[in-house]
Simulated scan of single mutants.
Amino acid sequence: MKLAYFYRNLNQGGIQKMIVNAANYFVEQGNDVSVVLMIPGGEYVSLLDPRIKLIYFRSLKKSRLFFSFSDILKREKFDVLFTATPSLNTFTVIGRLMARVKTKIVISERNNTVVFFKNSALTLSKLTFLSIPLLYRFADAIVAVSKGLGQSLQKVALIPANKIHVIYNPAWSPELEKQAGLPVQHEWLNDDTVPVLITVGRLVDAKNHALLIDAIALLSKKREVRLIIIGEGPLREKLQSQINSLNLQDCISLEGFKLNPVSWMSKANLFVLSSDYEGFGNVLVEALAAGLTIVSTDCDYGPAEILEDRYGFLVPIGQVNALSEQINYALDHPIDRDLLISRAREFSVNQIMQHYQSLFSTLIS
């Protein structure tokens, strides 16, 4: 099977990590695999199997994007091409129509589409949202990464349920548990006297790190804690200003992007996710793989399906008091480490990718 994964770049992000895991799996199975990127480079390129072919757009001029993509489709003649997010999903459908090729198109929703576009100020994003019911029906298959997201997509895209396939992200691999054992040089993680919380995610509004910082400000009045925030993004300066204004410089640290966050997680006492919305939540599986007790907002979608009622603690979104109190409780009531690691393995690359293998094979048979 000649298979391609298409995305903007391989910078930090859950979608990019999923593409790396999936592409590596399929090339290991003996398939001809390519990764098509609009923009060369990215932190995760080094994680790709060297047998994977990297293909870049010839031109990034807006007037040439569709032609660059169409040329790639005509030249490569993929059996199946996979992409994700509404803007690239619609772009890919149009590009395939222009190229007039037989490539099967599998598009994927990875986030709460309704909330994302409701919060978007860009006119182009609004137009993309409005085009979903028209263009998604031209895809050969649609994948949603959680049940809740699949149900939402049925309403947004006006697509029948039998065309939407719910397949969780392939987030666990044996390599994760190996990474958990790697050393980390950070004085807080070598100090057992003060519990360390950790969160991982891009510094963007959807992750609501500001809520978590406020929760730590409340909690620090009751007990001494420290928070490590791993991730990079446009809100770094704003979040640092918030930390400074609350005089929390000595207990909250913005550590930037880390290629191997699991090694950091495994040295902490608690993982916290404060997002307003998610599609799945790869970092939750990574935290489980590190054997780390989790406190997460009960946002749409993903956390409730991953954590269920026994693998972590859920709190309502946007409620700083509830988040602070639940963190305080979880620090004193950690969940069994082996139970958490066992749960993470249910989202293994090998297990999840078998569902994709079946889907792709059905499409081209």
Rank of each mutant, 00 (worst) to 15 (best):
N247G: 11
F271V: 09
H333A: 01
L363R: 05
K147A: 14
D298M: 08
D205N: 15
N162C: 11
L158R: 11
S70C: 06
D336Q: 10
S274I: 05
P195T: 14
S266P: 00
I198N: 12
K207Y: 00
S59R: 07
W188I: 06
K102Q: 08
A210M: 13
Q185N: 08
R58M: 04
N111D: 13
I327L: 06
L292A: 00
N162G: 06
Q154H: 04
M98A: 02
K77P: 01
R236E: 08
L323Q: 02
L122E: 14
M18R: 07
A215V: 12
V196A: 13
I341G: 05
F91Q: 06
D336I: 03
T123N: 12
D332N: 09
E325P: 00
I159N: 02
K126E: 03
L314D: 05
L153V: 15
K258A: 02
I132R: 04
V27T: 12
G281Y: 00
S348V: 02
G30A: 04
V114K: 13
Q357C: 05
G41V: 03
N11E: 14
Y329E: 04
I306N: 04
I230T: 06
I132D: 02
G150S: 12
L323V: 03
D140C: 02
I107E: 08
A121S: 12
V196E: 07
L239E: 07
N169D: 10
L270T: 04
L122D: 13
L10Q: 01
A141L: 05
L54K: 11
D336E: 15
L359Y: 09
I105V: 15
S342E: 13
F129L: 09
S152T: 14
I94A: 05
Y277D: 08
I107C: 09
F138K: 14
A330P: 01
E175A: 11
D191G: 05
P40S: 14
S263A: 14
R51L: 01
G318D: 10
E305M: 03
A322H: 07
S68E: 01
T199E: 13
P261S: 00
L254P: 03
M18Q: 13
F57S: 08
